[in-house]
Design a protein around this nucleic acid. Structure first.
Lengths: 328, 328
DNA sequence: CTGAAAGCGCTTACAG
DNA sequence: CTGAAAGCGCTTACAG
């Protein structure tokens, strides 16, 4: 240890750099070490440090699709919760793909302090089997004894159905997501159930990937039938799908919301500025991230997790895509 | 080392697990070790390994805005080039922000095998000062002796100007990006220069962040003046800006491309499926990633870099937003 | 309060 | 071909 030379001794430096000086190092030595560190531009080697402690300070966030703006929010929540003692690093995979077990194994070899897994599939979790601290996010419908933080998407879907029914819609189309994530199954089931209860007929519009273009294309195919069949609203599994629908509705000269109401799910930033604004279910992404981060911190510290599965409220945001003259 | 017990000895295991058996380990021992590894589910501890070697196998990709779909492509290129010997990890920061030096310092403590920095600012690079293997991506206009892989955005802007001039436009608006990245300065300068040469007048439309909503709003403000002032095309610094313009043009009933031509820059996936498709400058993102990855590999291996600064061709993709009846 | 010592899990020359 | 040994840079009980 280089810094050792520039003052007194070896172990003391470690105490100082790791901030464990409480009644174990004299003020004089602390100052001396600090000075030496500054002079030499010394930075603790994380490798040695981690090896000695048995754990690195890395927290991996494993998410299927980083380019979804939704994650930017989740990430900022996680960072906020984690603070500076841990490094949040994103494991990246091909667009939209859950990482391969082999990829994850290589990451595990780095002995991370903890793992955050977003929108996991059941298969992925069984293959993962790690004893590392692990918290699941947005894992509605997944069976696991790992702590999780979820959105109450069922409630959101229910609110959506209620809103459309209140607007007088009798027949609506449902455009689903083609990714097999559990959350979409839950959204759909809850919507269908509530719509049925309220006497609103639902027509399945098939599924597309979470992609504006794919959704736009699907809508183009569907609309001719729908317009004669009395469909007056289309419910989309994600905001991204809804953008595609909005686009083609404009191109086709379909008036939104007068002729066709459109709704999304997620409340991405753009949903506020689209024209018309998109009525959608708001999912508190920042909060998801910060709660998950806090849970992970507890796990790492060996504290008991009192609330194993947390659920965040989903709320309905009404905008111009379903209501004329909305000021939202 | 646990695996040592299940066969012969210690160092041999290391040789086997790291694949350095070439004429140094007998076939029998290799088999024995492999069996033991399989039985015990042994995974090399990356921490110990890295410490002994003095370097980890981590490659950091530092990028300002992961939620841009452009990065998904860059990332897949990098992964392809890097192979499985290195772990590509994304350093994440608040949306659109270049990471703070303090963040990067913590990452450097992990002793990464190398660093990939995308769209850096000059300030960031001077603060970074690391001796780690480093390759810059999309750093047009940045002075640095680190190897870099860039796009020929100037050429792209020139092609754009030529295309619009050929379509008969005499007066065009230029909507710039508010981020201070060099690449935007280069795009703008090249476009203005070529437009001037071709006798096309350019009106500055100000700048907005890379955000559909912000661009849409800017267009709303601008259009009344432009429509009476004879502006027949708007050139956007990124595709994202162009999406905002397309949206509001539709809302305002402005016909694209008949009344107003719109162009972007980047060729994001959505530009192909938007309606109309967006005429834009295609930037080969996957190739950017794979070339940068390959350069970094050389650097890590201590090989000489023959071509310090590489430039990838930018091409013009003409679609319906500038040309009626385009089949593209 | 402080230093010497052992150990974290691996890798790499170095003798055999 | 193979094992004993030293060392990577830190941290953490443990004597003093």
């Amino acid at each position: 240890m280089v810094a050792a030379r520039a003052g007194v001794s070896a172990a003391t430096v470690s105490l100082v750099t790791s901030g464990k000086t409480a009644g174990r190092v004299s003020a004089g030595n602390i100052a001396r070490v600090d000075a030496a560190v500054a002079e030499l531009g010394y930075v603790v080697n994380g490798l040695g440090s981690s090896l000695a402690k048995g754990r690195s300070s890395i927290v991996f966030l494993i998410a299927p699709d980083v380019s979804n703006p939704f994650y930017a929010k989740v990430i900022s929540g996680v960072r906020e919760a984690l603070g500076t003692d841990f490094q949040l690093l994103l494991s990246v995979t091909e667009a939209g793909q859950t990482p391969e077990p082999a990829d994850v194994r290589r990451l595990l070899a780095l002995r991370p302090a903890g793992l955050l897994v977003d929108a996991p599939s059941a298969r992925f979790l069984t293959e993962l089997r790690t004893s590392d601290p692990l918290v699941l996010l947005d894992a509605a419908g997944i069976e696991s004894d790992a702590p999780s933080v979820n959105f109450d998407v069922a409630r959101g879907a229910k609110l959506l159905a209620g809103h459309l029914a209140a607007q007088g819609h009798k027949k609506v189309g449902y455009l689903d997501s083609a990714t097999g994530t559990e959350t979409f199954r839950v959204r759909r089931a809850a919507f269908y159930h509530e719509a049925d209860r309220l006497g609103v007929a639902v027509v399945a519009a098939g599924t597309t990937t979470v992609d504006v273009g794919a959704a736009a294309f699907a809508f183009t195919k569907l609309w001719p039938d729908w317009s004669v069949g009395g469909v007056t609203a289309v419910v989309c599994a994600t905001d991204t799908h809804a953008y595609g629908v909005l686009q083609e509705a404009r191109v086709a000269g379909v008036r939104v919301p007068e002729t066709l109401a459109v709704t999304g799910f997620d409340d991405l930033p753009y949903s506020e500025t689209s024209n018309p604004g998109l009525t959608t279910v708001h999912l508190p992404a920042v909060e998801l991230g910060s709660l998950a981060g806090a849970q992970l911190l507890k796990l790492i510290a060996g504290e008991k997790i009192t609330e194993l599965h947390m659920t965040l409220e989903a709320t309905l945001v009404v905008r111009g895509s379903t209501v004329v003259d909305s000021e939202a």
